[in-house]
Design a binder for these strands. Structure first.
Lengths: 137, 137
DNA sequence: ACACAATTGTAGCAATGACTACAATTCTGG
DNA sequence: CCAGAATTGTAGTCATTGCTACAATTGTGT
């Protein structure tokens, strides 16, 4: 079973970690797109991640099998309760990392890019520190 | 051509980014292992990354083709000048991220794990900030 | 209503990184 | 020196994520 939590030892990240990151990125994106556009379609995700619709298709299939989202052929994508919860968690974590970077004096554009990359690699302990230091307690 | 630098827009990390991360992790490991053990062999890398020797084999092949390291069948692995330069860069970046996390009050074990994950996602601007704030100027 | 555009789905390919199983080479102890 | 252990290489498989090309469905405008 893939896990989202940090591994107990360095140098031990595996393929499943990466798959989890993709899942997190996608549910987060679905939630955002629904908030922004009303519905989330394959084309929105393809545009957001700058990949072909085919790639989106396959990942959506996998996430549906994992019970994170629901869709039917040619129909919009919605999150399950489980997917919604994951999306909310990710959004919060993302926000903390982003604001922490801003609090260091990093410009918004750079902070946005770096937060995207960093968010999946921050342990709960470090995230808590970030939250404190960003004044988000 | 894969690049090491941050992308210009969020949500745009591709497969090549991940391949570059692997390259960085491997050249860094080769440098460390040579420093610690005298020579770097496939078995050292397999142990370090907790993967089979086969996985190491294929990645080493790819990195040799990319001109980062050199080896011959059943022989130790050495870095090319290019590989050595990359390893030095990575080592420095890793060190900055690690010490920055320590400077926030994060414990050594957690900082070590998080630095591993974060180092590949820190832009030059953010790295510079980290360096300043960690008192490494 | 119906043709055409847009969207989505399917088939099939490539690269990466993971594995097991087995073959080849190198190293080591008697 | 040479048998067995350790190491490394090779073959073949799978999952993930990327693609192009083509098929199917949906939506739209006249």
């Amino acid at each position: 079973m893939p896990k989202t939590v940090a591994n107990s030892k360095p140098h031990q990240r595996t393929r499943s970690d990466h798959a989890s990151e993709t899942a997190e990125d996608y549910v987060e994106a679905v939630a955002e797109i629904i908030a922004e556009e009303g519905t989330c379609r394959v084309k929105h995700l393809a545009a957001r991640f700058a990949v072909s619709h085919v790639t989106v298709n396959r990942i959506v299939d996998r996430l549906q099998k994992a019970g994170l989202l629901v869709t039917q052929p040619y129909q919009p994508i919605t999150l399950t309760r489980k997917g919604g919860r994951l999306a909310a968690q990710c959004r919060q974590r993302h926000e903390i990392v982003y604001r922490f970077l801003l609090s260091l004096g990093i410009d918004e554009a750079t902070a946005a890019i770096d937060a995207e990359g960093i968010e999946h690699h921050v342990s709960p302990a470090t995230l808590k520190k970030f939250q404190e230091l960003a004044g988000m307690e």
